[in-house]
Design a protein around this nucleic acid. Structure first.
Lengths: 118, 118
DNA sequence: TGAACATATGAACAATTGTTCATATGTTCA
DNA sequence: TGAACATATGAACAATTGTTCATATGTTCA
C-alpha cells in the first residue's frame, strides 16, 4: 500500500531542499548564534539594558545590576571583546557605552517577545 | 581639588538612576535572556532557520543540519518546551514547524546583524 | 610619594550544556 | 504479529560558562 502521507512527504522534501539551498554558511550561523549567546545571560543582558539608557561607569553598572564589581568587569570584557560595548577612561572611572548600533533593535525584539510569552 | 570629571559623574549618575527606574523585573530579564539562550546554539539555530523555510520532519532536519537524528531530537525537545516549534504526527513522521510568530523577526535581526559584524 | 579609590584579571570551582551511545516508543505494512 | 522505519529519551561524559576570591593595575590627590 502507498503511504497515506505522500503529499506531506513531498512537501517536506521541498522545504528541506529549499532550506539546504538557502541556509547560511556554517561560519555565519556561528556568528549569529554568538550574538544571541552574548545576550543569553541575565547579567550581561542587564548591563546592556542599563547602557541603552545611557553611558555609565562600572560602579553604577554593578549597582544597577545588583552584582559584584568583579562580576560586572568580567562580563564587560566579553561585551567589549564582541564589540557590543566600548569603554573610555575619565580619570579614575571607565565610562562604558553601547558600541553596536544594531544591538538595541535585537534586544528590543527580545523584550517585545515577552508580550507573547505571557 | 575638585574632580576633573564632575559633570561626567553627574551624567553617569543620572543614567544609572534612569536605568534603575526603568529596568525590567528580574523575571522578565530572565525570560528575555532565555529566548536568546535558545537561539545561542548553532544546531538549534540551524533547525529554526530550516523550519522558517517550511515545515519538515526530523529526518530532513538532521540532513539539513548535518547532525545526528538523536542530536536533532534533543534540540527539538528544547525548542518544543519553549514554544518555539511544534510537532504534529503524520503516520511515521513528525512534522515540525515554527510555533512562535515572533521568532522570525528575532532571528532575522540576528542575521541582519551579520552585515555590521563584517 | 603613598593612601584611597576604580577597575581588570587570573585561578579555582560548581553548575550548565551539548553530544554520543544505547535503547525505548510509536507507527506502518506485508 | 513482527519486521522495518521514524523518533524520543535516559545516562554518561567532555566542554563551556559564570561566579567568587584574591590580587594586580591604573588613576587621583593631599
Amino acid at each position: 500500500m502507498e503511504s497515506m502521507y505522500l503529499d506531506k512527504e513531498q512537501e517536506h522534501k521541498m522545504s528541506a531542499q529549499r532550506a539546504k539551498e538557502e541556509i547560511l554558511s556554517r561560519a555565519d550561523i556561528e556568528k549569529v548564534a554568538n550574538i544571541f549567546q552574548i545576550l543569553a545571560d541575565s547579567n550581561r543582558l542587564k548591563i546592556v539594558l542599563a547602557l541603552l539608557k545611557g553611558s555609565m561607569c562600572v560602579f553604577h553598572l554593578a549597582e544597577v545590576c545588583e552584582c559584584t564589581q568583579s562580576g560586572v568587569s568580567h562580563q564587560l570584557r566579553i561585551l567589549r571583546n564582541n564589540g557590543i560595548v566600548k569603554g573610555k577612561r575619565f580619570g579614575k572611572f571607565m565610562e562604558y557605552s553601547i558600541a553596536d548600533g544594531h544591538i538595541r533593535e535585537i534586544v528590543e525584539m527580545g523584550v517585545a517577545h515577552l508580550a507573547c510569552v505571557r
